[in-house]
Design a protein around this nucleic acid. Structure first.
Lengths: 339, 339
DNA sequence: GTGAAAGCGCTAACAC
DNA sequence: GTGTTAGCGCTTTCAC
């Protein structure tokens, strides 16, 4: 029977008076700290529940100089990739008393700086952020914060403290390897035109590097702006094949456009993987429901989230060299010729 | 040239000493408050930047009794639906100085209570939460918080303060209307078995209600547990059609399983929409890339997020009756017969 | 097992 | 235009 819309939020003092014990005792009960007799404990809990008291973490955080927040800074939420990393983080944080707080940068370094500044002003316990490329300002802020920093997704570079992820260069190399082994030689690439998507860039670099070792050059490339959708994948595939009909393989920078391309090719009756092979990147769940399974690389998103969370929470020690390398896994699917 | 990893985070006092002015003046400059001479302003900003000072919002919030946070409580992030609502919220909050903080309940009322408790303990400026169904405890907490509460997605029920959304009952009715008009009569339903998915339940209720008015009864229904994926849509469609081959329409509780069903049907060479009609719900972007466009209802997710954010931020007054009703829009696509 | 006092880093209110 | 003082609601520390 709590009063409706009290003008002033309840404080510890209100509970303390209702229970007839000191504020300190109430505080102890509510945090399960120190010895409190079962009787007082019960009195306090009853009073708190009856009043509908919700502790004020702002005050608590200031007093204790500890805040149970982990800042998570990611480029996008509309990608399905980062929500999955987040899922891993959240799952692993669940029993630590830590809570993730998410900031989104939209792949903009300026926004990354702003988001970081904002999150750090809450004095979080640790920071998890995507990628290894950050502005000088961002690095300075993180240095000054004096808290654990885990950079996720990518390990090709120098981490501030610790990096957890896969080598995108290696993922690109390995995909090239598989494509070459299957005998494809006229290879096209379709990806985002995003100077800030460093991971896609590194994959492409590794990909071309391996092709070059086999004396093969990328026969065509098509870049696009904005988000990735099935529709965009269809359009880009149509366009690149119209321009370069001799292509026998298309490597997409992500599964979403890859799947769009696949659907379009099947509609056109193109012989896949015989006449044309296809591959994407990420191993998103979506692929399992399509008429044919797109070849791809599992980017280990959930594992990345979990390991990162384990490290910021102290469950797991950060490695000496600062790098936790997970293995990108090639998934053959049905769109690369078997030999 | 900031020192590396200082043992103690910087405070206002450090900036104050470096700039040779009072803490209060520093505070004013950093918040753009009150009159400060251009000269002092410059001195302070330089000092703050050089040191790499990041204000402590914990302390600021406690002192000012104001926190620029909006709690957003949603059931899931793996759905693509809620991230879009979030996108609308975030876009509209962008120029208000308010910041969304997200909590996820996984459709569990117990977790909703826990998440709310946790978020309210940060004393946010307002709360946006999905749905109108909440525990007594949750309602009590929200009442006590004495801050604006906007419930989103659904308007079929009694809002605490304000509800922004569509009527799912109406969305269900209108889809039934369209299906009946097209002449389908042997109608099956496929949806999640989630007692806590009130919106899906209300849609189904409205759907059956309208069918009943036309003397039509649902010919079959299939429920499933867990998340929605293309794969699940394929399996369920196969199963329901094996059991009830006479069905001439399938109404899915969301586009993801609907799209999976559509793909499977096309693979089987089933005549769509002639022999079998299909419809989903949500109007997700995915549908635009499929070989055939699934009929669906636009649930107005982004608009819902925007309006909700406008209301918590005070940009827009909450309506007298507490209900902001958006119109669910029927999208015919290609999977319902034209007449 | 419980309580009293001090203070976390800021900002509101007011003085100058 | 700038400074001083008090205090936000807790927790730390220490006393009993």
């Amino acid at each position: 029977m709590s009063p409706k819309r009290p003008p002033r939020p309840l404080t510890l003092r209100d509970v303390s008076e209702a229970a007839g014990v000191s504020e300190m005792t109430v505080s102890r009960v509510l945090r399960n700290r120190g010895d409190v007799s079962a009787a007082t404990r019960e009195k306090v809990l009853t009073a708190a529940r009856t009043l509908g008291y919700v502790p004020n973490k702002i005050a608590g955080g200031l007093a204790s100089q500890r805040v149970n927040l982990v800042a998570v800074v990611i480029p996008s939420l509309s990608n399905m990739v980062f929500p999955e990393v987040l899922g891993g983080i959240s799952a692993e944080l669940d029993d630590t008393g830590l809570q993730p707080v998410v900031g989104v940068t939209h792949y903009s370094p300026a926004r990354e700086d702003a988001v970081l500044y904002d999150m750090l002003s809450w004095r979080p316990t640790g920071v998890i952020l995507a990628g290894l490329e950050h502005s000088k300002a961002a690095r300075a802020m993180l240095d000054n914060a004096a808290i654990p920093v885990v950079e996720v997704m990518d390990i090709d570079g120098d981490p501030i403290d610790t990096a957890v992820g896969i080598s995108h260069r290696r993922a690109g190399r390995e995909m090239a390897e598989e494509i070459l082994r299957a005998g494809y030689r006229q290879i096209g690439f379709i990806g985002t035109h995003m100077p800030e998507d460093h991971r896609a860039r590194k994959r492409l670099a590794g990909f071309e590097e391996r092709l070059a070792e086999a004396g093969v050059t990328l026969a065509a490339r098509e870049f696009y702006q904005g988000g990735s959708s099935l529709l965009k994948g269809r359009e880009l595939t149509q366009r690149i094949l119209a321009r370069e009909p001799h292509l026998d393989f298309l490597y997409y920078s992500n599964d979403m456009i890859g799947a769009g391309g696949l659907i379009w090719c099947l509609e056109q009756g193109i012989d896949i993987p015989g006449k044309l092979g296809l591959a994407g990147f990420n191993a998103v769940e979506l692929l399992d429901g399509l008429p044919m399974r797109l070849a791809t690389t599992d980017a280990r998103r959930i594992d990345i989230g979990r390991r990162a969370a384990r490290i910021v929470s102290g469950k797991e020690a950060a490695p000496e060299n600062g790098i936790v390398a997970l293995t990108p896994t090639f998934i053959p699917g049905d769109t690369i010729r078997r030999i």
